[in-house]
Design a protein around this nucleic acid. Sequence first.
DNA 1: GTCTATATGGTGATAGAC
DNA 2: GTCTATCACCATATAGAC
Lengths: 213, 213
Amino acid sequence: MALGVGEHMLDSSRADILEAAAHCFMERGYSATSIDDVARRLGATKGRIYHHYSSKSDLFADVFRFGMEMNYKAIEPLRHSREKAVERWRKMAFVHVVQMITKRQFQRVVWEGVEMHLRGATTPEQRTVFADLIGSRARYSDVFRDLLAEARDDGDMAFGNLGITNQLVFITLNSPIFWYSPRAGETEGYIREIARQIVSFAMHGLGMKEGNP
Amino acid sequence: MALGVGEHMLDSSRADILEAAAHCFMERGYSATSIDDVARRLGATKGRIYHHYSSKSDLFADVFRFGMEMNYKAIEPLRHSREKAVERWRKMAFVHVVQMITKRQFQRVVWEGVEMHLRGATTPEQRTVFADLIGSRARYSDVFRDLLAEARDDGDMAFGNLGITNQLVFITLNSPIFWYSPRAGETEGYIREIARQIVSFAMHGLGMKEGNP
DNA sequence: GTCTATATGGTGATAGAC
DNA sequence: GTCTATCACCATATAGAC
């Protein structure tokens, strides 16, 4: 029940599988992860997984989907506030980074899913499953990109090529999925402090003054 | 012979294998790449590969090694110049980014090698092979980090935590391995312009004024 | 719903011809 | 030095008991 999302809840059996799968995919990557690995982490056998998912790529896609749902949910309250674009961007960037840190397993899967798509490494059948996920992810990225454009028009940001800049910013915001490692006694305040430094770095790169969310 | 490195040249047979392997590992990742894939790309069979390398991880390690050798070679002339740290950092960052773009296959393998190490996904025997490679990569990163510290002492940069900042900067500089895609009629000037924008973004993030290498 | 087989295919690695 | 078998193993996915 900890994994409630949007208007519906996931039954706990499925939530357990998602959590275990996300963790395994994060640790070993899609290809090196076997269904047996996920089952072992669940303390079960693969029969249980195949009862809920028809294939490994189906399972992977559902983890991907759930990761994106969490992201949209996190920024939703901030998207349509009446503040200036630069301020909306700053707050959204902050909660995005916190997501990257606290939901690391799922965000790594999202990243690898995008990677697989960009490399064209997916099989034809996988493309159908992936299509709307990749679209969802692209639209999510566009939300941030459009705010950058708006903030530049407002004169609150200064940068060169919009597409490249958004790539640089996004990879900066996503980077903790690669280098952050949780430590004992990790507090919410500690995580927020890390996130603050990352957003600050990105904002400077965007030609802005300092700011504390 | 195009792959000459350091004081020695690689025999062309081995250079061909390295190039093909790098390309396959870039496209599919380590685990999803089979020796047959590499052989197919060579227009050969795996007998040829196993004559030069005793295992898949050995081959991967050699691609990793070669990628790092290229990196060290690229920054070597700049490391010990007598300019200020901030200026040395800027020039080294620039050639590093150009490497990321122009030697993308090898740099992706370096990235995945580091990833595999961080995830602890390597088998005990692989750790021995990887150990010095990871060390080499860590020292390479430290070269940049130490310059950041020096530049901050000089009063030429302003940032918070050194370790986090170096991670953010490094991931920014490395990012084209993920999003850059070569296009027809790609000129050296075009690549340098992209690199210039990336370094500029990073430098702003480091609390510096604009600069054109 | 979850388990225990088991069918099936692919992959790393080796042996031996040329 | 490269090729053509071939082996042994592991992983996806299924079938059917409980």
